[in-house]
Simulated assay, not measured.
Amino acid sequence: MDLSRAPPEKIWRHLKESEQVRNSKFETRYARMNPPAELYRPVANLRTFGPNKGLLEGRRLSEGDIKGLTILVQFKDVKSNVTQEDVDRMLNGENYTENGNFCSAREYFRLMSGGKLNYTNVVVGPITLSKNRQYYANHLLVEEALDMAIDSGVDLKIFDSQDEGIVDAINFLYAGQTQYIGELWPHNYFLKLKRGNMKTHFYMLSSLGRSKEDMSIGTFCHENGHMLCRWPDLYDYGVRDGDFEKSAGLGYYCLMSAGNHNNNGRVPSPVCAYLRYLVGWCDNVVRLTRPE
Rank of each mutant, 00 (worst) to 15 (best):
M1T: 08
D2V: 07
E9N: 08
K10F: 13
L15A: 15
E19D: 15
V21T: 14
V21N: 06
A37Y: 09
E38T: 10
Y40A: 13
R41I: 08
L46V: 03
E63D: 14
K67V: 05
I71N: 03
F75N: 02
K79V: 10
M90G: 14
L91Q: 07
E94T: 09
N99R: 10
C103N: 00
S104E: 04
E107V: 14
S113N: 07
G115K: 12
T120Y: 02
V122E: 06
K131H: 13
A137G: 09
N138Y: 14
E144R: 00
A145P: 00
D160W: 08
F172Y: 13
G176F: 07
G176S: 06
Q179S: 13
Q179N: 07
Q179P: 01
H187I: 10
N188V: 03
K192H: 07
K199H: 09
M204L: 12
S211N: 15
S216K: 00
I217R: 01
I217Y: 02
T219Q: 11
F220I: 14
C221F: 04
L228C: 06
L234M: 15
D236H: 04
V239R: 12
F244K: 10
A248P: 04
S257P: 03
G259N: 12
H261T: 14
N262K: 09
N262W: 03
V279C: 10
N284P: 04
V285T: 09
